Simulated assay, not measured.
Amino acid sequence: MKKEINVVGAVVVDGGKILCARRSETMSLPGMWEFPGGKIEAGETPRAALAREMREELDCVVEVEEQVESTRHEYDFGFVTLTTFYSTLAGDAPRLREHSEIRWLDPGELGSLEWAPADIPAVEKIAADDAAAAADVSRPAGR
């Protein structure tokens, strides 16, 4: 029976751009992009886990906001349930500790990266929400 792993990811938004983190060669799924975060520990809420993981992985403090998406994906090592949350920086910029690279991208650019499979539904939702918001802004008043 495969292991069940519950993880959280931060969709950090700053100046309209979104933080993307590339998994290092020492991590599972090396070279793939993700919303940074990690495992929820026993007795920990998802939001508390995300705040802790961001301190540990990227040496930054975030304010965890509304949920973006929750998806379950089967990998060869087990089933991962990933819950992503919009977040904002509450201090210094992220610094690399575990990841090999970080990038700040516009929501419409997220699809240009090779994402870890569990992150793809959140990427698609963010891009769709951004496109819908842009359409609302460009629509003339009264229509």
Rank of each mutant, 00 (worst) to 15 (best):
T83A: 10
A128D: 01
Y86T: 00
V62M: 11
E98P: 00
A10S: 08
E69V: 04
V62Q: 02
G38W: 01
L110H: 03
D59G: 00
S24E: 07
I102R: 09
G43R: 15
M27G: 03
I5M: 13
M27N: 06
E124A: 09
E34T: 15
L96A: 04
V64Y: 06
L113S: 06
D14E: 12
G31V: 15
R47W: 10
E25F: 13
D59H: 07
G31M: 11
I120R: 05
T84Y: 01
R22A: 02
W115R: 01
M32N: 07
E56Q: 10
G31W: 11
P121M: 04
M32Q: 12
A132F: 08
V61M: 07
A51D: 07
F79C: 09
G111Q: 11
V8K: 00
C60V: 13
G108C: 04
D136V: 13
T84H: 02
S100I: 15
T71C: 10
T88W: 09
V8W: 04
G37R: 00
A116S: 10
L58N: 02
R95I: 13
D119K: 00
E25I: 15
V11N: 00
A116K: 02
V137D: 11
D92V: 14
E63Y: 02
L110V: 09
K125G: 00
E109G: 00
A42N: 11
Y75K: 03
P30E: 07
R95W: 04
D106Q: 08
A42G: 06
V13S: 09
S24L: 13
S24V: 13
V13L: 06
A42Y: 14
S87T: 15
L50W: 08
A141P: 01
G16T: 07
K125C: 04
H73S: 04
A118P: 01
L89Q: 05
T84V: 05
V123S: 02
L19C: 10
D119V: 09
E101C: 07
L29K: 08
A48N: 13
C60G: 06
F77H: 15
